[in-house]
Design a protein around this nucleic acid. Structure first.
Length: 432
DNA sequence: TCTGGGGTCCTAGGACCC
DNA sequence: TCTGGGGTCCTAGGACCC
C-alpha cells in the first residue's frame, strides 16, 4: 500500500509555526516580487481569495478582512519541509519525497483499521514535533492515494486521514469523484473529456483502452490503470539528477541598463552552476532569455532567447563566460526588461564524461580550484558571501519582498534579531 | 502602479540512415 | 505515369505537476 502525506496549506502553516497568534486567522503567502497569492490558510480560502490571484486585485479585501500577508521565505519552508520528511522516513522503509510539501510512503499492508491507526499516529507526531498539520491518504496506487488524501482533507469527519483499500468502497468513491480532480488530468484534458461526456472518474474508467490511448495518449491509460488499482506510476525513492536546471526571476523594477541586466544574468548563471555541481553534473548547453513586461500593453515588447553549446563543464567561470556572450547576442537597447533567466541543459554525469576531441580545455586547474574554494566559503558563510565581480554588488535586480518573515531556523543573524526583540518586549512588559 | 518559479513527460514531424 | 521498407534521433510544442 502507498500512503501520501500532504502538508495542509504548507507555506501558510510554516508562517504559523513561529507566530502561533495567527492560528484561526487568514494568511496568504505571496509569490516572488509579492506578485500573486501562492498559498492560503483555510480562512483565506473561505474569504474567496483564489490561488494565483494577483495581489493588487484583492488589496481591498485583504485590508478589510485583516488578512496577514507574507512574502515567500523559501529558506524557512525548505528547512521545515526537511524536518517533516525526516520524521516521515522513520515510519517507512521507503519514502519518495514528491515535492516540498508531499511524500509517498510505502505502507505495510494490514487491516484498514491498522493502517488508519498508523496514519493517525504519523499525523499526530508531525503536528506535535514540527507544528505542521498534514493529511494522509492510503491506497493501493499513487493516484488512488492522492484521491484518498483529497477525501481526508475535504471530509471533516475523517480528521485528516483516509484509507481506501476496499474494492467496493473505491468504486463507490470514483462514481462521484470529478475527473478533473484526478492527479494528472489538467484543465485542457478536463475540457476535452467533458465534450466526450466524461465527468466522473468512473466515466473515465468505462472508456475503451484504444479510445483513451488515442485521445489521452499513454498518460491517460496509465491513469485508468492506477484507478483500477494497478500501479502504473512507479515509486521512486531515490531522487534522479535533474535533466535541466533553471534560474529565472522577474525584476522588482524594470531594467533598461545593459550593466544591470548582465548582473542579473550572471547571478542566475552562478546559481544554476551551484545547483549543477550539487548534483555532480556537467552541462554542455545553456539557454539565456530576456523579455519585457507582457502585461504592459502600452510599452514596446521584446522577447528573445538563445542557446549556447560548449564542451561539458560545471565550472562557474566557464558558464558565466557563455552567459555573458549569450546576452550580448540577444540584448537590444531601448526596452524595459522585466524578466531574465538561465537554463542549463544536456547534462552528463561526472563518471561518464565525454571528452571533446577538438577543443582544448581552456580552463586550467586553477579555475577549478577557485570554484571549489568559492563553494566551500559560500557553504560555510552563506550564499553570495563570495561572488563573481560580474554579479555586481548593488542587487539592482533584487525582488520586492516587503513582508518576509525571519528565517527562524537557519539564519543565525535573523534568529539573533528575533531573540533580541523577544527580550526587549518581555522587558517592557515587565516594566509596565 | 502592481501579475511566480522550476520542473517532467509525451507526441508529431522532420531529417537522416541503410 | 511510374517511385520501398524499416528504422533512429532530434526538436518544438503541448500538457501537466507543485
Amino acid at each position: 500500500m502507498i500512503a501520501l502525506v500532504d502538508c495542509n496549506n504548507f507555506y501558510a502553516s510554516c508562517e504559523r509555526v513561529f507566530s502561533p497568534g495567527l492560528n484561526g486567522k487568514p494568511i496568504v503567502v505571496l509569490s516572488n516580487n509579492d506578485g500573486c497569492v501562492i498559498a492560503r490558510s483555510n480562512e483565506a480560502k473561505a474569504l474567496g481569495i483564489p490561488m494565483g490571484a494577483p495581489v493588487f486585485k484583492y488589496k481591498q479585501l485583504i485590508e478589510a478582512e485583516k488578512v496577514n500577508v507574507f512574502s515567500t521565505n523559501f529558506t524557512l519552508y525548505g528547512d521545515l519541509s526537511q524536518r517533516v520528511m525526516n520524521i516521515l522516513s522513520e515510519y517507512s522503509r521507503d519514502i519518495e519525497v514528491y515535492s516540498i510539501d508531499e511524500a509517498f510512503l510505502e505502507f505495510e499492508n494490514g487491516s484498514d483499521l491498522a493502517m488508519l491507526e498508523q496514519a493517525v499516529e504519523i499525523r499526530r507526531i508531525v503536528q506535535k514535533h514540527i507544528g505542521i498539520p498534514v493529511s494522509i491518504g492510503v491506497a493501493p496506487t499513487k493516484t488512488l492515494a492522492k484521491i484518498a488524501t483529497h477525501l481526508a482533507k475535504k471530509d471533516p469527519e475523517k480528521q485528516g486521514c483516509c484509507v481506501l483499500s476496499d474494492k467496493k468502497k473505491i468504486e463507490q468513491v470514483l462514481q462521484t469523484f470529478p475527473v478533473g480532480e484526478i492527479w494528472g488530468i489538467g484543465r485542457r484534458t478536463t475540457k476535452k473529456l467533458a465534450m466526450m461526456g466524461v465527468e466522473s472518474a468512473a466515466d473515465l474508467m468505462a472508456l475503451q483502452d484504444e479510445l483513451i490511448l488515442r485521445e489521452l495518449t499513454v498518460v491517460g491509460l496509465r491513469i485508468k490503470k492506477e484507478l483500477m488499482g494497478e500501479p502504473s506510476v512507479i515509486f521512486e525513492s531515490t531522487a534522479k539528477p535533474k535533466k535541466a536546471i533553471c534560474t529565472a526571476r522577474s525584476f522588482g523594477e524594470m531594467i533598461r541598463d545593459y550593466e544591470y541586466l548582465e548582473q542579473a544574468i550572471v547571478s542566475h548563471c552562478v546559481t544554476c552552476a551551484v545547483k549543477l555541481r550539487k548534483q555532480h553534473s556537467f552541462a554542455s548547453s545553456m539557454m539565456v532569455f530576456v523579455h519585457t513586461n507582457s502585461f504592459r500593453k502600452d510599452l514596446p515588447q521584446y522577447k528573445r532567447n538563445i542557446v549556447m553549446e560548449f564542451p561539458a563543464t560545471q565550472n562557474t567561470i566557464a558558464l558565466v563566460r557563455q552567459a555573458k556572450e549569450a546576452l550580448r547576442k540577444i540584448y537590444k537597447p531601448g526596452y524595459d526588461y522585466k524578466k531574465a533567466g538561465v537554463i542549463l541543459m544536456d547534462f552528463q554525469q561526472q563518471n561518464a564524461l565525454q571528452e571533446d576531441l577538438f577543443t582544448v580545455n581552456t580552463l586550467d586547474d586553477k579555475d577549478n580550484r577557485l570554484v571549489e574554494a568559492l563553494d566551500l566559503i559560500n557553504d560555510k558563510y552563506g550564499r553570495n558571501t563570495l561572488r563573481i565581480a560580474d554579479q555586481g554588488l548593488h542587487d539592482k535586480h533584487a525582488m520586492r519582498q516587503n513582508q518576509r518573515s525571519k528565517s527562524y531556523t537557519t539564519r543565525w543573524d535573523e534568529i539573533l534579531e528575533v531573540k533580541i526583540q523577544e527580550t526587549k518586549s518581555k522587558k517592557q512588559e515587565h516594566e509596565t
